[in-house]
Design a protein around this nucleic acid. Sequence first.
DNA 1: CTTGACTCCGTACCATGGTACGGAAGGTAT
DNA 2: ATACCTTCCGTACCATGGTACGGAGTCAAG
Lengths: 146, 146
Amino acid sequence: MALTISELARSGDVGVETVRFYQRKGLLHDPRPAATGGAKGQRHYGEEDVRRLRFIRSAKAAGFILDEIAELISLDHTGDRPRAREMAQVRLAALDREITQLEAARQSLRRLARECAGSDEGPCPILESFEDGAVCGGTGRKSCAA
Amino acid sequence: MALTISELARSGDVGVETVRFYQRKGLLHDPRPAATGGAKGQRHYGEEDVRRLRFIRSAKAAGFILDEIAELISLDHTGDRPRAREMAQVRLAALDREITQLEAARQSLRRLARECAGSDEGPCPILESFEDGAVCGGTGRKSCAA
DNA sequence: CTTGACTCCGTACCATGGTACGGAAGGTAT
DNA sequence: ATACCTTCCGTACCATGGTACGGAGTCAAG
């Protein structure tokens, strides 16, 4: 094992610049402290980094923002389980709300698509069929205080 | 009916600045063309605007970005049904993918929360339990080309 | 020994969706 | 009429998550 940065990036299906960006954010090891590999100043990466990058992808998919992901990683090092559990549960609850909202949105949209089908002329009832609300909130992290 | 901007904002549970922002984006009527209400230069809003604002909220909840919402509104005026239907169906497909991904993420996260429960010491298996992937993509609009 | 590919690094830029600020003008209550 | 609240308006700023750029260094092949 001794991946270059571009190989690491490919392994996580992200760009080289994204790997660098994650390094700056503290999500991935940063080579700067010391040259660890062959060539002067050139860093090589290993399994650990590949796993880390995959974790970031999964955590992002679960809706954690990068700062939270950084915290999760540090928690993994310090072993603060209660905090980790708390974060997981908060996100889980938010996730449930988000899924519920998206499903409601899907219903509305499906209805719209049905009602809009048929003729090709005249205004679609887009605004009307969507207007009745029932749906609230955005991508999920925003409050839904209605 | 004759709402002030702050009343309109409240009706849609957004801030005054957000209403203005939507006006600039062309999502809501912009008073500038002509003073429509009582006082000089001061605009008052009606039912139409309240409905429009609600539509924006719903469309946002369905994952449309503001530019798309602007397009939907203009389509409603021009009556281009095929395009409207197309947009709805594209978004619907994306929504299904997003929901699937979020549900997968929820599964992983639930497992993590379970595995992390119990003792309060030692590193939580956060990274490990998330690491195995299966989940891909982010908030949903990003590609999942893995 | 030059060319090309890759790296490192800082800095700048991008889109998205707002949020805040400051000044001028008008409306309302005391 | 003075204070206070809102409005209007432009402009600037913010977070989030990247993406691109330019310059310099290193390495291997031709």
